[in-house]
Simulated scan of single mutants.
Amino acid sequence: MIVSLRYVPAGECALMIYAHAENPEECAAHLRGMLAALDAAPPPYLVDAIPTSDSILLLYDPLRTTGAEMETYVSRLALPAPAEQSASRLIELPVLYGGEAGVDLGRVAAMAGIEEAEVVWLHASTEYIVRFLGFMPGFPYLGPLPVPLQTPRHETPRTVVPAGSVAIAEDQTSIYPVTSPGGWNLIGRTPWRLFDVHENPPSLLLPGDRVRFNPVDEAEYSRIHFEILADRR
C-alpha cells in the first residue's frame, strides 16, 4: 500500500494532512491508522483530530507548538499494521427496503438499468467500511458502494428525512441518525438507533467499523422496532 501525504498549514493553529493513493480505500485505511496512532500516543498540544475519507485536520495549541513540529511528530508515528486495522467490529443492520421506507429505490434502479430487487441484493451483499463521520453527529460515510448503485444526490434536498433512513449518494451509502433535511437517495430504513447522547460512545458506528445490511420484511422490522422502544422505557 503506497500512500502519499501532503501537509498544508490551515491557519495558526491547524494542520491539514491530505492522503493520496490509487485506491481510495487505501487512503482511508492509512488515515484510520494515523488516527489510531494519535489516540495511542497523543501529544499534549493536540486539541482535536477531524478525519474525512482522504484527509485529517489536526487542531493544536499554538502557544505550545507549531505546524512544523506537528508535522514532524505525525511523520514519525508508528502506524498499526494492516492486519491490526482489519480486526474491526462488524455491525449488521436490519433494513426494510423499498416502499415508504425507501421511496427512491425505484429511482436508483431506473438510473442503474436494473430491477429493484437487484438493487437490494447488490446493496445488501456488500460489506462496507465506515470511512468517517460527518454532516451531523453519528452520520457515517460508508464505502465502497457497488458501481451500478452510484447515484447522484437530488438537486433539491428533502426538508425531512426520517431517522434510520438508509441512503445512497455518489459512491457512498449511509444511514441518517436523526430526522433531518437531506438530499441522498432513500432506499430503505433500519429500526436501529445510530446516535444516542446517553450512550458512550454516542455513535453506534465508528470509523473503521465494517457494516452489512440485512433485508427484513415489514413484520420483522416492526418486531425489532417495538423491542427497541421497550428497551428504552
Rank of each mutant, 00 (worst) to 15 (best):
Ala83Cys: 06
Glu84Trp: 07
Glu69Gly: 00
Ser75Asn: 10
Ser55Tyr: 01
Thr52Arg: 01
Ser53Gln: 14
Pro94Asp: 00
Ser53Gly: 09
Gln85Trp: 12
Leu96Tyr: 05
Ser55Leu: 00
Thr65Ala: 09
Leu63His: 07
Leu58Val: 04
Ile56Lys: 06
Leu77Asp: 05
Tyr73Thr: 01
Leu93Gly: 06
Glu92Ser: 15
Pro51Ser: 08
Leu79Met: 02
Thr66Ile: 08
Leu90Asn: 00
Asp61Met: 03
Leu93Asn: 05
Thr52Ser: 15
Leu96Gln: 05
Asp54Lys: 07
Gln85Tyr: 13
Pro82Arg: 00
Ala81Leu: 13
Tyr97Gln: 05
Ala68Trp: 12
Asp61Val: 00
Ser55Met: 05
Thr66Lys: 04
Ile50Ser: 04
Leu58Met: 09
Pro82Phe: 03
Thr72His: 15
Arg89His: 06
Thr66Pro: 11
Tyr73Met: 02
Tyr73Arg: 02
Ala81Val: 11
Leu93Cys: 07
Gly67Trp: 03
Tyr97Glu: 00
Pro82Trp: 02
Ala87Cys: 07
Asp61Asn: 15
Gly67Ile: 08
Thr52Ala: 14
Thr66Val: 12
Arg64Pro: 01
Glu92Met: 01
Leu63Gln: 13
Gln85Met: 14
Thr66Arg: 13
Arg64Ser: 12
Pro80Asp: 00
Tyr73Ser: 00
Ile50Val: 15
Leu90Tyr: 03
Ala83Lys: 13
Asp61Arg: 14
Ala78Val: 15
Glu92Val: 11
Glu92Asp: 14
Ala49His: 08
Pro80Ala: 02
Ala81Phe: 11
Tyr60Met: 07
Asp54His: 14
Leu57Phe: 04
Ala78Lys: 15
Ala68Cys: 10
Glu69Asp: 14
Asp61Gly: 03
Pro80Asn: 02
Ser53Leu: 12
Leu77Thr: 01
Ala87Lys: 07
Tyr97Arg: 09
Leu63Cys: 06
Pro82Ala: 08
Leu96Ser: 04
Glu69Phe: 04
Ser75Leu: 04
Ile56Thr: 01
Ser88Trp: 10
Ser86Cys: 10
Glu71Thr: 06
Ala68Phe: 13
Gly67Thr: 02
Leu59Asp: 04
Leu63Val: 11
Leu58Lys: 11
Pro62Arg: 02
Ala83Ser: 14
Ser53Asn: 13
Arg64Val: 06
Leu79Val: 05
Ala68His: 14
Val74Ile: 12
Glu71Cys: 09
Leu79Cys: 03
Pro62Met: 03
Gly67Arg: 01
Leu96Lys: 04
Tyr97Pro: 10
Tyr73Ala: 03
Val95Ala: 06
Met70Gln: 07
Asp54Thr: 02
Tyr73Asn: 10
Thr66Phe: 14
Thr52Asn: 11
Arg76Pro: 11
Thr52Phe: 07
Thr52Tyr: 06
Asp61Gln: 10
Glu84Ser: 14
Gln85Ser: 13
Leu63Trp: 10
Tyr97Phe: 14
Ala81His: 12
Ala81Tyr: 11
Ser88Cys: 14
Leu79Thr: 01
Pro94Val: 08
Glu69Trp: 13
Thr66His: 12
Ile91His: 12
Pro82His: 02
Pro62Glu: 08
Ala68Asn: 12
Leu77His: 07
Ile56Met: 06
Leu77Glu: 09
Leu90Met: 04
Ser86Asp: 13
Thr65Asp: 03
Ser53His: 14
Ile91Pro: 08
Thr72Tyr: 13
Leu77Tyr: 04
Ala78Thr: 15
Asp54Cys: 06
Thr72Gln: 15
Met70Cys: 15
Leu96Met: 06
Pro80Leu: 04
Ser88Arg: 15
Glu69Pro: 07
Thr66Ser: 15
Ser88Tyr: 00
